[in-house]
Design a binder for these strands. Structure first.
Lengths: 96, 96
DNA sequence: ACTATATTTCCAGAACTATCGAAATATAGT
DNA sequence: ACTATATTTCGATAGTTCTGGAAATATAGT
């Protein structure tokens, strides 16, 4: 992971709604969570939610898979893990 | 750390210049680094740099101390550490 | 083909962020 | 007081992000 990619991921996580979405998706684990279920929990308009989901996807923080009419979102956990590793390697006092 | 504060810190780190500043400050350790030295390394106009420093300070990611005409910036490492801990507690698959 | 459900894309306005030259402020030395 | 150095604040512009209603798309069932 380079600094541009790390900054992009941090930026997309740096919004309370998106951070909540991501957090919720990690809790949901591998099967992920339907967009509609997220909307129900977060109580925000569908278009707003959809934009935030697209932002997270643009940073490879989540992916979507369709099952019939329902789209499931999954946390792309490896990418997040790589971000944490980048931060610990580049910005951790302990490592130096 | 709550989710609003975590999002704020992530947001401010989510810009390539600010992430570079922060990274550089962590490397500089306790004595920190003069604004002028940062400018020399990053080669950006002083006003632009000053705004980015203020953004990081607004998220408690750095503090400044003056020595004569020189202002030193120090990474507020505890706050960053708390952020990483928040992310690992709230968004880590391993913990669940 | 029609209707219903799930979700995205389009559109637009308001709010915010980034950038940087120029002016202002702070401090030090003479 | 004056000059030089270090840094911030002002002011303005351009660009980006956030928000959400309405329209469009995708799929399923009848």
């Amino acid at each position: 992971m380079d600094i541009e990619i790390a900054a992009k991921a941090l930026k997309e996580l740096g919004h309370p709604i998106r951070l909540s979405i991501y957090k919720r998706l990690v809790k949901a684990g591998q099967p992920g969570m339907a967009v509609g279920k997220l909307q129900e929990e977060l109580k925000i308009p569908n278009s707003t939610l959809s934009h935030h989901i697209a932002s997270l996807a643009s940073a490879q923080l989540l992916s979507q898979t369709r099952d019939g009419r329902t789209l499931y979102c999954q946390a792309e956990y490896e990418h997040f893990e790589a971000l944490i590793e980048f931060l610990q390697a580049e910005c951790c006092a302990d490592q130096m």
